[in-house]
Design a protein around this nucleic acid. Sequence first.
DNA 1: TGTACATCAGTGAACGCGCGTTCACTGATGTAC
DNA 2: TGTACATCAGTGAACGCGCGTTCACTGATGTAC
Lengths: 207, 207
Amino acid sequence: MSSNRQPERIRPTRDETKAKLLDAAAVLFAEHGIGTTSIEDICAHAGFSRGAFYSSFSTKDDIVFELLDIHFEANQAEGQRLYDSSSDAVSFIEAMNSDERRRTMPVDDVGMLYMELNLYAVRNSENRPRLVERQRRDFEMMRGFVTQIVEAEGLEVPGEIEDVVHLLLALDTGLLLHALIDPETQDPQRWARIVTTLHTLWTSPSS
Amino acid sequence: MSSNRQPERIRPTRDETKAKLLDAAAVLFAEHGIGTTSIEDICAHAGFSRGAFYSSFSTKDDIVFELLDIHFEANQAEGQRLYDSSSDAVSFIEAMNSDERRRTMPVDDVGMLYMELNLYAVRNSENRPRLVERQRRDFEMMRGFVTQIVEAEGLEVPGEIEDVVHLLLALDTGLLLHALIDPETQDPQRWARIVTTLHTLWTSPSS
DNA sequence: TGTACATCAGTGAACGCGCGTTCACTGATGTAC
DNA sequence: TGTACATCAGTGAACGCGCGTTCACTGATGTAC
């Protein structure tokens, strides 16, 4: 099996260590919140001592924003991928709603992590600009989708297209937050149902 | 002027002190976040020493949840009031959108405070139930409004009425959060515009 | 109306703890001969 | 293939600071005479 020429590695690679710390942080931030999770907690969960942390990250903020970057890029890429592989609005909505979508990160509760990271960044005036930039990129991506769908299906938008984009993004965020507060009331199909209804309303009006 | 029989009060009333502390906390929580605001900060801003705080509140959590209660009750009452004094859906939307609505609390940024309080409570497993209960009351209030409007105007709801309610609440929350992240992009009229459009879409379809 | 006393709202110094960060160290990994 | 040495990833004890909370106190307010 592992009878390589190379001696068996005892110590993990620098990159492996960093990845383990990031994973641990993602799990714990999602579960307990960023403020309540100590660096000690992260290291213990990843199986390292505190010093290992400072070998990979310069500060606690550092790991938070690195996570935020990773999460954001993954989300962007996946949104684009799902859109590209969907033939029309309806199948896009379905794709966004599928279970598969939840598996981007090594965390059950991606939503909580997303919220945590965002609210942490909102308060951190020094890093706020990075968050703003990402939110605008989200907006632009969604605007692209909506514009193309509107054109492809020959819809006539009631009001500004920007408002539609804002509506869709806000709906996503709002449902997420409400689900976090009261998971029992949560219905995983609701997002798709509402968006589908909106799409139908849009499509059918005989002006 | 103040030539009462009673000697001039030097020390404020117990209630006055408590109110000042609550106001200070609301302002600072909204501005810097709950986690970053120390009790010392609150007391300094209100013009008291630390001990005064513990004369009115037993713990930091205590003041947080008291604020959350105050804010929630005010919001509920105002929503009901605006609804009662509106003749139809359109005027209700207008009323909700008016500037007047922002003046419930002694804080400019009521939104940030609301978000802060909610996210603080989400993480606080001990007090989560209280938050859940309030969210459900919000839901019920809005469900009442929507149901009555639908009946009064003889609309036919596409899909479940619960979904409509969730849509409206999530839209509110989501727009709020996005505005917090990127105030520049914020448009105070957007909420009313979107909801009006939705209402129109609802009303006009010649099924 | 004035005086003595009890109460208790508010003071501010001190305590203790958790946590982020530092640093002298150790031993695994990579390199040179 | 084996040995000596340099590097540096990761260790874990120690430091320092901020902050929530406590507590012995002081002096304004209310009450009894």
